[in-house]
């Protein structure tokens, strides 16, 4: 069982606060949608949750049963699709996914299964630099999920996807909720349906 707890969370860059005094609990089996205008701190919030940034004030705690972990310690059990977490363009899609599988200790047969799942079987041997933005996003989702993490963090998960891609992401989010929690940062009103809770940033500072 995994639970995300944020207490009085705040992040400032210089003197500018993106958000302050943000507290919430995300229980196992639920999802959170983070909404807000550009520059309100949606992606920053995701980076705080996976330890790529340190909060200016407050705490992020991942609870795995009775065990409490900081985001940096919890990274192994997180999967993240972030704009600055790109696959290697000079490698093929298969080499990228295989590398993540090796880093996470996942059997290589899972790599093939995931290419079928994301609909990129015929493109698996293609260099990522030849991919469209939608194909790259599908690959990033597979790279975030191949180790079946307890928590999935998604930044604009459907922004570049067609209808089939949106349907796939919807299915993956529902599956992930069985395993743990999902946090989605988005500007797309259609993504709101994926969430059980909402936070709107940029409203109070």
């Amino acid at each position: 069982m995994v639970t995300l707890e944020c207490t009085n969370l705040g992040k400032a860059f210089g003197r500018r606060w993106l958000f302050r005094r943000l507290s919430f609990i995300l229980p196992h089996g639920t999802s959170l949608i983070i909404l807000g205008p550009n520059g309100s701190g949606k992606t920053t919030m995701l980076r705080l949750l996976c330890g790529l940034l340190i909060p200016t004030e407050g705490h992020v705690i991942w609870k795995f049963g009775e065990t409490k972990l900081t985001p940096i310690r919890a990274r192994f059990w997180l999967g993240a699709v972030l704009p600055d977490c790109e696959p290697y363009e000079e490698l093929t899609a298969e080499e990228n996914l295989q590398m993540v599988a090796e880093l996470k200790g996942i059997h290589s047969k899972k790599v093939g299964e995931w290419f079928e799942r994301i609909g990129l079987v015929t493109a698996r041997g293609q260099l990522v630099r030849e991919f469209s933005s939608g194909m790259k996003l599908r690959l990033k989702v597979a790279m975030a999920l191949i180790h079946e993490p307890f928590a999935l963090l998604l930044d604009e998960p459907t922004a570049m996807l067609d209808e089939a891609g949106r349907k796939l992401v919807g299915e993956l989010i529902e599956e992930q909720k069985q395993r743990g929690v999902v946090v989605i940062a988005t500007n797309d009103e259609r993504d709101v349906a994926y969430g059980d809770q909402q936070i709107i940033l940029g409203e109070r500072n």
Binding site: F64, G65, T67, K68, L69, R73, A74, R75, F76, W77, M99, E102, L103, K104, G105, I106, H147
Partner: peptide, 26 residues
Amino acid sequence: WVKGIESKEQIALISRTSWLRQVLAI
């Protein structure tokens, strides 16, 4: 990363991820 995580399935996942495997993958 495993510090404090004790469930069997979590340990099973971590034990497959040897540090040498990570070094060689990179």
